[in-house]
Design a protein around this nucleic acid. Structure first.
Lengths: 212, 212
DNA sequence: GCAGATAATGACTTAGAAGTCATTTACTGC
DNA sequence: GCAGTAAATGACTTCTAAGTCATTATCTGC
């Protein structure tokens, strides 16, 4: 953090921090957008949360919309690519591979800010097609490719049945999506235990794909 | 949709239709709320769509929020109850029962306005907990009960394995939820074929639950 | 320690949408 | 047909939040 040569560590009220501001404003914006939606979010609130004043936001972003798009793009991190390559090298069964990958997805979904992102995409995707398209291209389609590769591996090695489910590997991850949706809608009224849910998910999927 | 017939002798510009207005305004409101969200929806637009003027809305609803709640409550129709009773009487296997019930759910989800409702609940649930709670109580928890009854039947008759998936029957319907979410976010960029998706869904679930 | 340069501020303007209400007009019973 | 009524209107007020900008305070190099 910045420092000052007075008594309290950070007394100056107008610290100039050109480098740090955008990221702080983006983080504040993302949080506000996530639980209010684009239209209901006030830049005044975003500013307050970021520890600045509304006018400051306009030094770094042209408009509310520009901040919105910047915030979402900053959050969409394609971490998938390396996984695809390492699939070939995995030594165990494909069931074990799924037992490794599925919990990773749950951790990503519920540990990081991704389900926050999901809510925004669902809520605002219609009005910001560019964002939905970007997210689809950068994250969703890659995740899908990985799933396809895994299921194909299982079929090729004779571990999984071929059939309708193997042809549309998306269904394999559906319970995780449902859990995320539940978390953001009904969890207050009827909480779900993610750990148990994930076990049920794996139980269903591994048995559903397994060759007889 | 309910528009005025411009040819017919319906020229009067201020028809008084006390009975029909509320339903028309609600329908218009639901449509606008669904693709704009609560905050971004303008009552002026709702009025235009309903063929009235903004002031008229206030004859029937106290506020934008009141209209919103009325619209959602009108759409939440608990059609589940009779199903629960008829489960006992179903003659076939539990797999066949699911092959009957799952397509019904897909038809409900995609044929009627339910996935529209879903989007609103996801987008605005945080700001309108009363609505989310109502929807959960009237629809979700009943659907869940039905699923539980079906899976229990399968286990009791020795058709389904008992295990993690059978203990949390929610996972069984997850792919339908995912399909609905997909429809409202990425379908423009990468359309999914609901029919094929449903087959993959049933394939995965029936095999995943089946006793060995 | 001084003089630019510019990050940050907060008071301001503006736009747009919620909500109000006096007036107009269609319908009703007589 | 007429008078009373209330449904519907549209012009109005009010309020809120986006976006602007002249001023102020902090930082930098000298």
């Amino acid at each position: 953090m910045g420092k000052e040569s007075s008594l309290a560590p950070d007394t100056a009220k107008r610290r100039r921090r050109k480098e740090a501001r955008p990221a702080e404003i983006i983080a504040a914006g993302l949080a506000e957008f996530a639980d209010r939606g684009f239209a209901a979010t006030k830049l005044e609130d975003v500013a307050a949360r970021a520890g600045v004043v509304k006018g400051t936001i306009y030094r770094y972003f042209d408009s509310k919309e520009a901040l919105f798009e910047a915030a979402l793009k900053a959050q969409i991190a394609p971490v998938f690519d390396e996984v695809l390559g390492s699939l070939d090298r995995f030594p165990g069964s494909t069931a074990d591979l799924l037992r490794l990958v599925v919990p990773t997805i749950y951790r990503e979904l519920f540990g990081s800010g991704i389900h926050v992102l999901m809510r925004i995409i669902i809520a605002e995707g219609g009005r910001f097609p560019a964002i939905a398209e970007f997210y689809h291209r950068e994250s969703i389609s890659r995740g899908k490719a990985i799933l396809e590769a895994i299921v194909r591996r299982g079929v090729e090695r004779g571990e999984f049945r071929s059939g309708a489910a193997a042809d549309l590997p998306m269904v394999v991850i559906a319970p995780a999506v449902m859990a995320a949706v539940w978390k953001m809608t009904f969890d207050r009224f009827e909480p779900i235990a993610i750990e148990r849910f994930m076990e049920a998910h794996l139980d269903l999927v591994l048995n559903g794909l397994a060759a007889r």
